[in-house]
């Protein structure tokens, strides 16, 4: 049993939970995640570790309550318990020694990027962060990012705050203006990561994406999290979660994420909310590739 020490709503439908898990906090490195099972009947849900406090022995996860399982976790209040928390899973971010680094994140993926940005900074890089949200009410971690990054660009799809447009636009501008990073890290919706990879590809800038496939065990035992990278099958939980974004088959990942959505809800999604750009994007992708 793992105690939730605080649970704060960060934005509409987005919750930050701090959890007492001293061993995970102690062994965690940027880029690693954990798997949480809220109660006996619940799924095992993979979530990035957004922050930690080694002295207090806590980790923080930022969860977007999209479906049933994430709602179960978001509903656990301070002082209550989560049945299982296991981690840290996956391999730490390999930041290397870049002179300039960029982080491009979207939605809750932004939270996952916070410690990566710190790691980049810690490696001595000058860092730019571009973080995008659908609308102003969904913005999270802005202050934290502002503190760590040398330059921060916030974008919203609807223009209600910051730059009006997608994260790829300011990224493209940066690259065109010649301020090229040696390393780009991207975390967020699949379609966004795929688009970021296409922006950096012509410049041959090393780009790593932290992938979010469906998982079960997180120990390499089930193969649910398999992705195709450079034509080879990799298990995200043990070989990843970060891979060379220029080698990842994002389209396949996006298709596999619809495994448990009915045809109906898939259609809904294509028509409605966050995936408006997605069908259009893959059509573009097909033409190019």
């Amino acid at each position: 049993m793992f105690e939730v020490t605080s649970n704060r709503q960060l934005a509409e439908g987005v919750f930050g939970l701090s959890i007492k898990a001293p061993q995970i906090a102690r062994h965690h490195h940027a880029g690693q995640f954990c798997i949480i099972r809220a109660a006996q009947h619940c799924e095992r849900v993979p979530l990035s570790i957004a922050d930690k406090d080694v002295h207090a022995g806590t980790i923080t996860v930022v969860v977007q309550a999209v479906g049933h399982s994430t709602q179960e976790i978001a509903g656990v209040q301070a002082g209550e318990f989560l049945l299982d928390v296991v981690g840290p899973l996956g391999n730490p971010t390999n930041v290397g020694k870049p002179a300039r680094g960029a982080f491009v994140g979207g939605g809750v993926g932004v939270a996952a990027g916070y410690l990566m940005l710190q790691a980049l900074k810690g490696a001595g890089a000058e860092v730019v962060a571009i973080i995008g949200f659908r609308t102003r009410d969904l913005i999270i971690y802005e202050d934290k990012f502002r503190r760590v990054s040398d330059e921060l660009i916030v974008t919203t799809d609807d223009g209600s705050y910051g730059y009006h447009g997608l994260v790829t636009e300011p990224l493209e501008q940066q690259l065109q203006e010649g301020a090229q990073p040696d390393l780009v890290i991207t975390v967020g919706p699949v379609v966004m990561m795929a688009a970021v990879a296409e922006v950096t590809r012509p410049y041959a800038i090393k780009t790593i994406a932290s992938l979010n496939p469906i998982m079960v065990d997180g120990t390499g035992m089930c193969g649910a999290c398999r992705v195709t990278v450079g034509g080879q099958t990799k298990f995200t939980c043990v070989d990843g979660p970060e891979f060379d974004a220029h080698q990842v088959d994002f389209r396949e990942l996006s298709e596999r994420l619809k495994m448990y959505k009915t045809n109906e809800s898939r259609a809904d999604e294509a028509g409605a909310h966050h995936c408006q750009v997605e069908p259009a994007y893959w059509r573009l992708d097909e033409r190019n590739g």
Binding site: E43, R44, V216, D217, T219, G220, M221, C222, G223, A224, R226, V227, T228, T233, E252, E255, R256, K258, M259
Partner: peptide
């Protein structure tokens, strides 16, 4: 516990499981 796959085309389509995943979802989960 590290399932082998066939390495054939179409193996990552939706609806293709390793036995470990299928059985774990049922037995453990």
């Amino acid at each position: 516990g590290n399932p082998r796959f066939l390495g054939i085309e179409g193996e990552n389509l939706r609806g293709v499981y390793s036995a470990n995943e299928f059985l774990t979802r049922i037995n453990l989960m």
